[in-house]
Design a protein around this nucleic acid. Structure first.
Length: 373
DNA sequence: GTCACCCGCACTGCTGACAG
DNA sequence: CTGTCAGCAGTGCGGGTGAC
C-alpha cells in the first residue's frame, strides 16, 4: 500500500521541512516521498516539485505526486473545472505526475438535496466521458488515471467501470460519516474490486482514508491521508505502541497531545503531562530517536493591542474575556510550538506503516473485514 | 457659483466557516 | 494550525442634487 501524504501545502514552503520529511521516509526504508497535490492549488504542486529539485537536482524519481482534480471541493464552492485547463496542466507537468484523478461529476445537488436516480446516471456517464477524454488526450497513460466511485453511487456502476477496462479505482467513503458507515461502504465495494478470496482484481485507492483501522483492513493499492498534519495541527504526536519490545505499526498508535495550549490537557490520559513516568519515558525515547526536540515555550499576558514580536504568537483565548490576551513566546523551536515538526514526526508513523504493509501482510492475515467477522 | 449632504461604488479589512 | 474565501462593515472618493 502506498500512502500519499495529503494536507497543508505550507509543509513544503521551506527546504528544511522537505529534507526532514524525506529523511524520515528514507529511514523507514522508502525510496519515494509520496505527496497528494490538487489541481485547484497549483502552488502546492509546484512547491513540492521545487523542493524536490533543490534536494535531488532537476529531475528525480525520489518523489511521486498523486494529482487530485479537486472536483469535489470545486463543486462544493459552486464552480466548475475547465477540463481543457486540467488537460494542459497535466501535460505541462507530466514528468512529475505519477497518477491523476479523473474529473468526476458530482451528482447530488449543491443545496444538499439528494439527486434523483436519473441525475445520478447522467453524472456518472458524464464522468466516464471525462475519463475517456482525459486518458486519450493527455500524455498520462490510461492505467495511471483513477476513476472515483463515491459513497452514494449505485453499485451497478462498478460493472461499467470494470467493463471499460479501468484498472485503478478510487473509493470515496466520504467525510463526516461515521467509521461504521465508512466500513460498511468499503465492505460492499470489496465485492467488486476483489475476488472471492479477497484478493484485489484491480488497483484501488482510498480517498481520505485517514484511520489506521481502514488502512489496515483492506488490501489497498494506495490511500491518501491528512491525519499526520491534522493531528499535528491539533497539537498531537503519534507514538507507536510497543509490543514485545518493538515498535508496532499495524496497531492504532497512541496520540499524545503535547502542546501547552492544547485543550486535550483536560481530557484524561491524553496529554503528555498526564502520562505516567514510564509512558513518558517511552515517548521521550521515541522523540529522541527520531531526532526531534520538544523546544521551549513560555506564556505571558498582555493588552489586547499588544504588537507581537517575531518569535511570538497569540494563544487562542482572551484569558479575562476582555482587555487581556495570552501570548506564546517561542524560546526554542520544537514539537511543543511548531505544528510542522509534529506533522513530520507523525509522517514517520505513516512511512513505517507503508513500509510494512505490503501485500504480503494481507496474504498472511487473510485480508479484509468481512472475513474477520 | 458655492456649499452641504446623500448615495453608489470600489476597495480594504475583519470575521467566521471550512478544508487540508 | 494555516490558508482561503465569502460575507459584511467601514472608509473614502466622485458625482449628483438641492438649498442658499
Amino acid at each position: 500500500m502506498r500512502i500519499y501524504l495529503a494536507g497543508n501545502p505550507s509543509m513544503y514552503d521551506y527546504q528544511e521541512d522537505y529534507d526532514r520529511l524525506y529523511g524520515l521516509a528514507k529511514s523507514a526504508g522508502l525510496y519515494h516521498l509520496k505527496v497528494l497535490a490538487s489541481f485547484v492549488d497549483p502552488k502546492h504542486f509546484d512547491s513540492v516539485v521545487d523542493r524536490r529539485n533543490e534536494l535531488f537536482g532537476s529531475f528525480s524519481e525520489k518523489q511521486e505526486i498523486f494529482l487530485d482534480s479537486g472536483a469535489f471541493s470545486v463543486w462544493k464552492s459552486g464552480k466548475d473545472i475547465d477540463i481543457e485547463a486540467y488537460r494542459d496542466f497535466i501535460d505541462e507537468r507530466i514528468k512529475d505526475i505519477k497518477v491523476a484523478v479523473n474529473l468526476d461529476v458530482i451528482p447530488s445537488n449543491r443545496d444538499g438535496s439528494r439527486a434523483t436516480r436519473k441525475q445520478m446516471d447522467i453524472a456518472f456517464e458524464k464522468g466516464l466521458e471525462n475519463f475517456k477524454y482525459l486518458s486519450e488526450n493527455t500524455k498520462l497513460p490510461k492505467d495511471r488515471w483513477i476513476h472515483v466511485f463515491h459513497k452514494n453511487d449505485d453499485y451497478k456502476y462498478f460493472e461499467r467501470i470494470l467493463a471499460l477496462g479501468i484498472t485503478y479505482i478510487g473509493l470515496a467513503p466520504g467525510q463526516g460519516t461515521s467509521l461504521t458507515q465508512r466500513l460498511a461502504f468499503l465492505d460492499k465495494c470489496m465485492d467488486y474490486v476483489t475476488d472471492s478470496k479477497g484478493y484485489p482484481i484491480v488497483k484501488f485507492h482510498g480517498f481520505a482514508v485517514t484511520g489506521t483501522k481502514e488502512m489496515l483492513t483492506y488490501p489497498w493499492y494506495s490511500v491518501d491521508s491528512t491525519s499526520w498534519v491534522l493531528l499535528g495541527a491539533y497539537g498531537k504526536i503519534m507514538i507507536p505502541k510497543i509490543i514485545n519490545g518493538k515498535y508496532n505499526y499495524t496497531e492504532r498508535p497512541y496520540t499524545v497531545a503535547i502542546t501547552r495550549r492544547s485543550n486535550a490537557k483536560q481530557s484524561k490520559g491524553q496529554h503528555y503531562e498526564n502520562l505516567t513516568v514510564t509512558q513518558r519515558e517511552l515517548v521521550d525515547r521515541y522523540v529522541e530517536e527520531l531526532g526531534f526536540k520538544y523546544g521551549v515555550t513560555e506564556f505571558k499576558i498582555v493588552d489586547r493591542d499588544y504588537k507581537l514580536k517575531s518569535n511570538e504568537r497569540w494563544d487562542a483565548a482572551y484569558p479575562d474575556g476582555l482587555s487581556k490576551r495570552r501570548v506564546e513566546i517561542i524560546v526554542e523551536k520544537g514539537l511543543l510550538n511548531e505544528y510542522k515538526l509534529r506533522a513530520q514526526l507523525n509522517a514517520k508513523f505513516m512511512f513505517e506503516v507503508e513500509a510494512r504493509n505490503k501485500i504480503e501482510y494481507f496474504e498472511q492475515k487473510h485480508k479484509y473485514r468481512k472475513l474477520f467477522i
